[in-house]
Design a protein around this nucleic acid. Structure first.
Length: 481
RNA sequence: GUCCCUAUCGUCUAGCCUGGCCCAGGACACCGCCCUUUCACGGCGGCGACGGGGGUUCAAAUCCCCCUGGGGACGCCA
């Protein structure tokens, strides 16, 4: 990067599933760097995986980042001079660049079938070799390629890694990193469906969008050399790279929904203030100094340096999060307090969504607060509730719950009828009696025997909270063997 | 398995670059005491870490090497 070039950073989430706390984490550092340098933050939606992209997910990314106050300057929803900002709309650009690489000999067409590749991988694993493409199609002649193309054999475009070299790059936090090219795979650049992979799209878009600093998570370190190779193949200058540590579960593994709530929706629903969330995230790997741990993004901007990020993978500890949140809650005045509850908790929309569930069930309004508490609470108290039906034991329950969590995670759309279908199908699959199956789920999800219809309730409670409660039961004392 | 990243209290971290001020500081959690009609808040105190081994040096948490631990990547996912 030349000194005269402006700081332009980007955050590039893929719209699959719930908005992730890791996205917020990486966005924070990008945001701070952009703001303190008077630069720009670009939000680019990386939706090149056709099978996984969801429109609702994209919307939620906007909402979550806005909620946290991490506003971007350019994006699909805001426009800008370097659009389009939705990667799927840039397909032709990526294709052009792929053609260019093909022409200059930096890439080649590969006709290997997924089956052959799977077998290859299996074999390499068995032999304890490095996993990677074996270069089968690397030296196909022009005629052979033309012939196969004419026959309509599906193909991908791969990067032709010069194996006899070493690729080096500087990470702004970690220093110089180098890797032998023999360790680099001939990465697929264009998939057989015609869409680019992350690697190609990312490099091309970052360059075209004039991104100066690529700040992303640690998991990308090992593919950075491939990206460097791409920049070189195009004859482009590389941006500054910086890889921030990965957020971790309690057991130090990469943070995952199986072990920890990762959805920003969950924390919002839990009643974490956005300022507290951002503050807490900043504490993951960075510190303000002077033993001060409560600070605003503005204060952070005064002192933040990429180089000061601590590289040990920080455990995302909800206990500490709650403490930080308490600090922020203590600063609220009575207006702030009541506004929060009215604007964020007892909102018009939420109360209206609850109405059909309570319409015929209440005699007086006074009954509402008590009977609907599980629509507002987080963890529930299961003391004294018959979580395990008489005909089942704790072990069977655990197995049932684990299976259910997986099924619910895979559900495409979190809607009552879809949930109902899923429950019915799953119950039939495991051959449990309806009574044994539905009541425990109701108890786990609502904490009470009497509640509005189950599927409708689950829809309102939300996927993340339902998962959390089921896991809570799993981790609690109730089902201990 | 191969490669890469990483390493201070249980957890988040300060200190490390520019060795001595560090028998390592703060915060969370936990324990005790105080305040208090309860609970919380707050105050005070306690518990608690430089992963191991070699060097370099008068002196190492800080510099170097090895080992070990932890993590990540190895997809026509991102």
């Amino acid at each position: 990067m030349s000194d005269t070039q402006k700081v332009r950073v980007r955050v590039a989430p893929s719209p699959t599933g719930d908005p992730h706390v890791g996205t917020a984490y990486v966005t924070l550092f990008n945001y701070i760097l952009a703001k303190q340098a008077g630069g720009e933050l670009v939000l680019r939606i990386e939706d090149t995986d056709q099978s996984r992209a969801r429109a609702s997910s994209e919307q939620q990314i906007y909402e979550s980042l806005s909620w946290l106050g991490l506003e971007w300057d350019e994006g699909p929803d805001k426009g800008g001079d370097y659009g389009p900002y939705r990667q799927s709309e840039r397909k032709s650009i990526h294709l052009e660049h792929s053609e260019q690489l093909l022409k200059t000999g930096h890439a080649y067409r590969c006709f290997c079938t997924p089956e052959r590749l799977a077998k290859l991988r299996e074999q390499q694993r068995a032999e304890g070799k490095m996993l990677g493409y074996d270069g089968h199609c690397r030296s196909l002649s022009v005629e052979e390629v033309e012939q196969k193309m004419k026959e309509g054999v599906p193909s991908v475009v791969r990067l032709k890694v010069p194996k006899d070299r070493v690729t080096q790059f500087d990470d702004a936090i970690r220093g110089s990193i180098e890797i032998k090219n023999t360790q680099l795979d001939d990465q697929v650049l264009i998939k057989s469906d015609g869409f680019p992979t992350y690697h190609l799209a990312n490099v091309v878009d970052d360059h075209l969008m004039k991104i100066s600093h690529v700040i992303r998570a640690e998991e990308w370190i090992s593919s950075t050399p491939k990206h460097v190779l791409l920049y070189k193949a195009f004859g482009w200058e590389t941006p500054v790279f910086a890889h921030v540590p990965l957020l971790r579960n309690l057991d130090k593994s990469k943070i995952s929904k199986r072990k920890n709530p990762v959805s920003l929706n969950y924390y919002k629903r839990k009643g974490i203030l956005p300022e507290a969330m951002v503050n807490f995230l900043a504490l993951m790997g960075w510190s303000y100094g002077d033993d001060q741990e409560v600070f605003s993004p503005e204060q952070m901007m005064e002192k933040f340096k990429l180089k000061d990020i601590h590289l040990g993978g920080p455990v995302f500890d909800v206990v500490k999060l709650k403490h930080i949140n308490q600090q922020y809650m203590q600063k609220l005045d009575s207006k702030g307090f009541s506004h929060y509850l009215r604007d964020k908790v007892f909102t018009q929309d939420y109360l209206e969504s609850l109405f059909p569930l309570f319409k015929d069930r209440l005699e007086c309004f006074e009954q509402f607060v008590d009977r609907s508490s599980f629509f507002f609470n987080g963890g529930l108290d299961y003391e004294g509730l018959p979580l395990i039906p008489k005909s089942k034991d704790a072990k069977e329950m655990r197995t049932m719950i684990k299976g259910l969590i997986e099924e619910l995670d895979d559900l495409y759309e979190w809607k009552a009828d879809a949930i109902q279908n899923l429950l019915n199908t799953y119950r039939e699959k495991i051959e449990w009696k309806p009574r044994d199956f539905f009541m425990p789920i109701r108890l786990m999800a609502t904490g009470r025997k009497d509640s509005p219809p189950l599927a409708e309730s689950l829809e309102v409670i939300g996927r993340e909270m339902v998962r959390f409660r089921l896991r809570d039961v799993l981790n609690g004392a109730h089902l201990k063997p």
